[in-house]
Design a protein around this nucleic acid. Structure first.
Lengths: 240, 240
DNA sequence: AATATTAATTGTTGTTTTGACGTTTAATAT
DNA sequence: ATATTAAACGTCAAAACAACAATTAATATT
C-alpha cells in the first residue's frame, strides 16, 4: 500500500450511546434517577439517562456531559460498567451502549432540572418498566454497586460531606438488605481510620444526637483499593 | 411523528472493534498471546488479537469468533473488561474497542494456527511495544486478572483438567509475584472443597511425585462468586 | 541393598479478626 | 427529678490466619 489510509473500507459503522445509572441515597433508601424519554421511539417511557457519543468526545466525556445535563452536577463519581452490544437492543437502528454508574449526593441534586427532563427518583425495588434493555442494565448496576461497595469505601460518595455513623449504617443496611450490628460496624469502621470526628452533632434524628464525621480524603484515596469487610459474610454477592 | 422511524438522523456512526487479551500458563509463567498485525496501518507490529464487529453479531459473539480464529479453541473462558473510546486511539478512523480477557489451557493451543497468524506467547514482563492503546489495555487486563483471581477461582481455567497442587501454587505465585507458604495454601485450598484428588501422580517434576487433582465442577460453579483468600494480605491490588 | 536427597504431605501454635451480645452515657420529654 | 431513647463504649469465645516444624514417599547415589 503506497497511499496513507484515510479509513477502513468494507467495514460497518454503528451508533454509540452512553447510558447512566445514577444512584442516590435519601437517608432511607438507595434510589436511581430515571427520566421520561423525550424522543421517538418509546417517547414518554421511563428510561436511563443516555445519549449518543459525538465525534470528538471520549466515552467518559460523553458520560460526564450527559450527567451534567441531567443533574447539574460536575465531578461526580462515575465509573464505566460495561458495553451492551446485542444487535437488536434498539429496534430502530443498531446501537452499542456503554453503561456508567454514578454516585451522587442526592441533596445536591437540583429539582428544577429534574422538571426540565421529567426526571424522578425511584427506590430500587419499585422501578417502573424501562425501554430497550435498560432493566437489564439496572440489574447489572445493582450487582456492581453491591460488589464494589462490599470491598471498597465507595458508598461515601452518596453521602454529604458531613454525615453520621447511623446514616452510614442505614445506607449499608439498605444496599445489602440486611441488619448490621452497630457495635461491630463501628469497630470495623474505626479500624479503617477513614473518618474524622467533628465537634458538631446531628440532633434531628434522636435525642442524644449523633456526631458528624467527615472523610479523611487522603486516607480515602490511599486506601480506596484496600479490601474492606463491613458486610458480614459477604460471600455469594453476584459479581458483574 | 407519523411514520415509523427507520434510523436516528443527525447522529454519527463509528467503527466498533473487539480486542482480546489471551492469557496462558506454561507451568512457569503467565503469558499473553500477541500477533503480528496483518494489515495497514501498523502492519507487522505486535498487536492484540482483534477485529471489527459485524452487523449481525453481538460483542460476545465477535470476541468468540476472533478467539476461535486465533487459537482454534471454542468455549473458553471469556469476559468483557471495558470499552476504550478515546477519539484518537486509532489514527486512521475513530474506532471504539471493547476488550475481553480470555483464559485458556496453553497446551490445548495449536501451534500451526499460531504460524498462520504469526502469533507468539510473551511473558507478562517481556511484552514488546504494541500498537495504538494496546499496552494500556494489557495493563488493565493484568490488573483485572489479579483482582478477579484474588477473590474468585478463575485461574483454574488456565490449567489442564488434571493438575497438581504445586502447579496451581506456581500459577498463583507467578500471577502475584509472591511466595506463598505451601502449608497454608493447601489448607485454604482444602477448605474450599473445590478439588477432587485423583489416584494418579505426576512424577515428572519431583521424585516423590504430586497427586493429580481435578475441579469439582458443581462446587466450582456454585462457589464461583464466593470470596476466596488464597493470597495473604490481598490489599492494595489495583482494581479496574 | 543401604543411605542420601528431594519435595510433597501432614501437623502445631500464638496472634488477630470476627460475630454475638451486655453496659454506660448523653440529651430530650414528661 | 425521672423516664426514655439511641448513641457510644466494652467483653468474650470461636474462627481464621500467618509463621513455623516434622514426617513421608519416591528416586538417585554409593
Amino acid at each position: 500500500m503506497d497511499m496513507p489510509m484515510k479509513q477502513y473500507s468494507d467495514q460497518n459503522r454503528f451508533l454509540i450511546a452512553v447510558d447512566c445509572i445514577v444512584f442516590g441515597f435519601d437517608g432511607e433508601h438507595l434510589k436511581i434517577l430515571l427520566i421520561k424519554r423525550g424522543f421517538e421511539p418509546e417517547k414518554g417511557k421511563w428510561s436511563l439517562m443516555g445519549g449518543f457519543v459525538t465525534p470528538k468526545e471520549s466515552l467518559d466525556d460523553a458520560a460526564n456531559r450527559i450527567l451534567t445535563q441531567l443533574t447539574g452536577l460536575k465531578d461526580v463519581y462515575l465509573e464505566q460498567i460495561q458495553a451492551y452490544g446485542n444487535p437488536m437492543r434498539d429496534p430502530i437502528e443498531r446501537t452499542l451502549s456503554v453503561t456508567y454508574f454514578a454516585l451522587i449526593d442526592i441533596h445536591k441534586y437540583e429539582a428544577q432540572i429534574s422538571d426540565q427532563y421529567h426526571a424522578e427518583w425511584f427506590p430500587l425495588k419499585e422501578t417502573p418498566q424501562l425501554i430497550f434493555d435498560h432493566e437489564e442494565m439496572v440489574e447489572t448496576a445493582k450487582k456492581k454497586i453491591r460488589y464494589k461497595a462490599a470491598l471498597h469505601p465507595v458508598l461515601f460518595e452518596l453521602l454529604p460531606k458531613k454525615f453520621t455513623i447511623p446514616q452510614l449504617q442505614n445506607l449499608y443496611e439498605d444496599v445489602y438488605s440486611t441488619q448490621i450490628d452497630n457495635r461491630n460496624f463501628v469497630r470495623k469502621l474505626t479500624a479503617t481510620k477513614l473518618l474524622i470526628k467533628l465537634a458538631e452533632k446531628d440532633k434531628s434524628a434522636s435525642k442524644k444526637g449523633a456526631f458528624y464525621f467527615k472523610l479523611d480524603k487522603k486516607k480515602y484515596k490511599e486506601n480506596f483499593q484496600a479490601f474492606l469487610n463491613f458486610i458480614p459474610n459477604p460471600d455469594k454477592l453476584t459479581s458483574v
